[in-house]
């Protein structure tokens, strides 16, 4: 009960503290979009030979003829109503667009993160148990390759090997085979929706589509996770309480897992939060390569098209995601480490 209350208190305090940061993000992107060269009204006018009057009309329609501070106040009012404006490219409300595309990005990112953790933690532990062994060097090499090869290169490489040469992976475009029926939209996460409806053939197809982009992404973040696990595991294994655990005659694996790993994972939790947030934004290249209908490619298209509202909406959403992820990590950390609750 005491622990729950303390967690609740911390969550509340963190949320309150993040409000100014979010406001700052909104203002900053808003102003930035306004000072960037390019006039959206010109861009969205019906054709290259649209008249001055037509452009002026669009400008007035979009409210671009008002002073910037007035536009900003209107934007805030809109946020207050739960709206983020309308995208000129898709013609839909930005909120609706994001809601449609966010699950795709989240599904990809989460799958990649699970994959990355699934490989990084065991590899990190193995490397830490045999520091400077051949295995350690192999892990280091794989990690270095993962970071230094850009995702669009490794993505294309994976496509070439598994789709073109071996032919074991499905056509790498989109979340689902274009001829397959998509599941009813329940959560937006295809794997979950297929599982709920019990359509396992669909589930496998979607998972197959997901695998390559997720691997590409996972390869990219393998390094920070594995290296962190290795470093913190090495530090923990050298600490006094591991010696104590050995001195009372505990078996090797119990020393490593119960006393070593649990302590070593604490810093990995923090890194995982940072990695997740970065992935959510850095997805854009992978989304482009695999024609993944996610928020990253959506925002990039909007940015290139001088479409203000989606970019602003995307940045605000990312900031919110950052806050939420950090909060989640904080709570997790508080549960995992009893010392945190002291303050």
């Amino acid at each position: 009960m005491r622990a729950l209350k303390s967690i609740g208190l911390r969550v509340g305090r963190r949320l309150a503290a993040s409000v100014p940061a979010l406001l700052g993000v909104v203002v900053f992107t808003f102003v930035l979009m306004r000072v960037l060269p390019g006039d959206p009204a010109v861009f969205f006018a019906s054709g290259p030979n649209a008249g001055q009057a037509e452009i002026q009309m669009i400008r007035e329609q979009m409210g671009l003829d008002r002073p910037v501070h007035e536009q900003l106040i209107r934007y805030f009012a809109e946020i207050g109503r739960g709206q983020l404006g309308r995208s000129m490219t898709t013609g839909q409300a930005v909120v609706a667009d994001l809601r449609e595309r966010l699950p795709a990005s989240l599904e990809l990112t989460l799958a990649a993160l699970v994959l990355a953790l699934g490989f990084a933690i065991p590899l990190g532990i193995l490397a830490a148990l045999r520091p400077n062994s051949a295995l350690d060097h192999v892990v280091r090499f794989v990690c270095s390759m993962g970071v230094c090869v850009p995702t669009f290169v490794s993505g294309l490489l994976l496509i070439y090997v598994f789709y073109v040469v071996l032919g074991i992976s499905p056509d790498p475009t989109g979340r689902i085979d274009i001829f397959a029926a998509s599941p009813p939209d329940i959560t937006g996460f295809l794997l979950i929706d297929f599982a709920i409806t019990g359509d396992w053939a669909g589930w496998y197809a979607a998972a197959g589509q997901l695998l390559l982009p997720a691997c590409t992404m996972a390869l990219f973040v393998l390094a920070p996770l594995a290296r962190m696990t290795r470093a913190s595991m090495l530090a923990v294994l050298g600490s006094d309480f591991i010696r104590t655990a050995r001195s009372i005659g505990l078996s090797h694996w119990k020393v490593i897992v119960v006393h070593g790993l649990r302590n070593a994972l604490l810093p990995v939790i923090t890194i995982t939060g940072i990695v997740f947030s970065t992935m959510l934004g850095a997805n854009v290249l992978v989304e482009k390569v695999f024609s993944w209908p996610g928020v990253g490619s959506y925002a990039l298209d909007a940015l290139l098209g001088s479409d203000y509202a989606p970019v602003q909406g995307f940045v605000l959403m990312m900031a919110l995601a950052f806050v939420v992820v950090n909060l989640l990590i904080d709570v997790l950390y508080g549960i995992a480490d009893p010392r945190v609750n002291v303050e």
Binding site: D240, S247, I248, P338
Partner: peptide, 24 residues
């Protein structure tokens, strides 16, 4: 040795706070 440690020979260390697992 593992069978001996704790059962036949055990140790008490210096710096007791560091010698105990902080999160157990």
């Amino acid at each position: 040795l593992r069978a001996l440690r704790g059962a036949a020979i055990s140790m008490v260390f210096q710096n007791p706070r560091a010698a105990l697992n902080p999160i157990r």
